[in-house]
């Protein structure tokens, strides 16, 4: 039974049921498809024995596919290569947006004045519960948190998947090598904002721990 319903820009087409003319015809047709693929794959061997055609399994981990620039796995934090200044200002936007609530930020207080400084004292991401949605990277106004391309994170040590700030920080040049066009688009904006941020930091506050000792802390005093 087919119900008649008016359909605009198209029609309801009843499916035709086809049956093979003789027993075995349908199966022979199917085998033809498979054989066709077989000849396409191994046919080139007739000319040159080492040649084959078609789709092959990528022999991971020896071979790897190139990842798309937009590829996202888990978030990382960026710091400037030269000055060691972290881009993060601890504005808490990413902490608020994170759907499973796995980002935990502690803001920095200047020990001498007790005021908040635009830098994160601690920045924890629970990698084990992060869903890799990329919303944190999307919402960050300072281009500080970005999605990494590194995917070989499996470990037997569960606790090691709670990432602290020192584990998350990567130089800007690393992110640039992952996503050159994306970085090109936001570079100018990110550096402009970083300059403003640095003006309001003092001493070693906001400098990536791995860069402490390698860079000169800025001399500017924090703005009132």
């Amino acid at each position: 039974m087919t119900v008649k319903i008016e359909i605009q820009r198209g029609s309801a087409v009843p499916l035709s049921r086809r049956h093979p003319k003789f027993l075995g015809q349908g199966m022979l047709k199917g085998m033809e498809v498979v054989l066709d693929h077989w000849f396409k794959s191994f046919g080139p061997k007739l000319e040159n024995f080492s040649q084959t055609a078609g789709i092959f399994t990528t022999e991971y981990p020896e071979e790897r596919l190139k990842l798309a620039e937009a590829y996202r796995n888990l978030p990382i934090l960026l710091y400037d290569d030269e000055t060691g200044q972290e881009l993060c200002t601890s504005c808490l936007q990413c902490e608020k947006i994170c759907p499973p609530q796995v980002i935990h930020i502690t803001q920095t207080k200047d020990p001498s004045t007790g005021k908040l400084v635009l830098a994160a004292a601690e920045f924890i991401i629970e990698y084990d519960a992060c869903m890799g949605c990329g919303l944190c990277a999307e919402v960050c106004p300072f281009d500080s948190i970005k999605m990494d391309h590194h995917y070989e994170l499996s470990t037997a040590d569960h606790a090691s998947l709670t990432m602290h700030k020192a584990d998350l920080l990567r130089p800007v040049s690393y992110y640039q090598s992952l996503a050159p066009t994306f970085w090109e688009q936001t570079k100018e904006n990110a550096y402009k904002k970083l300059q403003n941020t640095v003006k309001r930091r003092s001493g070693l506050l906001g400098i990536a721990p791995s860069m402490v000792g390698k860079v000169q802390p800025p001399e500017t005093k924090p703005a009132e």
Partner: peptide
């Protein structure tokens, strides 16, 4: 878009 709706019998 023009497209049809196939229906079974």
């Amino acid at each position: 878009f023009d497209f049809d709706v196939p229906v079974g019998t």
